[in-house]
Design a binder for these strands. Structure first.
Length: 278
DNA sequence: GCCCAGGGATGCG
DNA sequence: CGCATCCATGGG
């Protein structure tokens, strides 16, 4: 895999550690679209236009440095996979999703997005987020930006209900009103334990959602979000009937350490994509 | 028409 | 702490 960074584009040739479709479809991002060999990817008010095929990925953006970091291009995924693949439970998942990368997305956007994700399905999560962008985000001409915190503070509970948030509308309203831009900046500077405590103190954020925000928005890799899929797979593979997700998460972090977040994405993508009931 | 979704809040012991 | 119950809504 070769990465060339120019002023307004990134060219990646022989991308054996980067499959764009896998990276976008593995459930870590809700704002993107793929049409044939062309994709658009969004983060806050930024957009990248990406053309791709088996041998080459070309990323275009007016903020190319942002997307270089966004796609985690400084990290050696071959090394990560070579370590994790020794684990028999992970091998098939890694072989299947070998091109997954963990994105470095915006912390605030992840916070809002994953509140919506709770007990919800991905298709509807995307719709709700699109609604919020279209109604409260800045019109960028060809697309709408993710609403800033101050923009989202103008939304009422009824607005969030119209966005399809259901019973999460009330939680979202309360959290948005409570949050401040300064609070988000402080969150970024906290250590792992402080971040977790702060996040779960907010309405609509429990252990799993907090872990997702930390993994996808705060660069914390030693977390293992346990959702219904991971819970199912865990029980199938270990032949147990454990439904204490907190306990499962603790056990998996102890097992995979700083590679937990990567392991989690490979497993989630593989089993969800194939709807495997082992 | 039914089951489920990248769970969380609340109340109870 | 652990556990049970409730929760809006629409995707498949």
């Amino acid at each position: 895999m070769k990465i060339e960074l120019a002023k307004d584009k990134i060219i990646i040739t022989n991308p054996q550690d980067f499959d764009l479709v896998q990276t976008l479809n593995c459930g870590q991002i809700f704002r993107y679209n793929i049409v044939g060999d062309l994709a658009y990817v969004y983060s806050m008010d930024k957009r990248a236009k990406i053309t791709f095929n088996k041998n080459k990925i070309e990323i275009l953006s007016s903020d190319i440095k942002f997307f270089y970091n966004f796609f985690d291009l400084d990290r050696d995924y071959s090394k990560i996979k070579s370590i994790l693949i020794k684990d028999e439970f992970l091998r098939p998942a890694i072989e299947y999703g070998a091109g997954i990368r963990i994105l470095n997305n915006d912390a605030y956007e992840m916070l809002i997005s994953f509140i919506i994700s709770a007990n919800n399905n991905i298709a509807r999560i995307k719709k709700s987020i699109e609604y919020l962008c279209a109604h409260f985000g800045k019109d960028m001409g060809e697309y709408f930006a993710f609403p800033t915190l101050n923009e989202l503070k103008k939304a009422s509970i009824a607005d969030f209900e119209k966005a399809g948030l259901g019973y999460r509308a009330r939680q979202m309203f309360e959290t948005v009103q409570k949050l401040s831009a300064d609070g988000i900046e402080k969150l970024k500077a906290m250590n792992k334990e402080e971040q977790f405590k702060f996040l779960i103190s907010l309405k609509g954020i429990g252990e799993k959602v907090a872990n997702c925000i930390m993994l996808f928005g705060l660069g914390v890799k030693d977390v293992f979000p346990v959702d219904t899929w991971i819970n199912k797979v865990y029980n199938d593979l270990t032949k147990r009937k454990e439904n204490d997700r907190k306990k499962i998460s603790r056990e998996l972090v102890a097992r995979y350490g700083n590679l937990s977040g990567f392991a989690q994405q490979y497993v989630f993508y593989y089993y969800r994509e194939n709807k495997i009931k082992v």
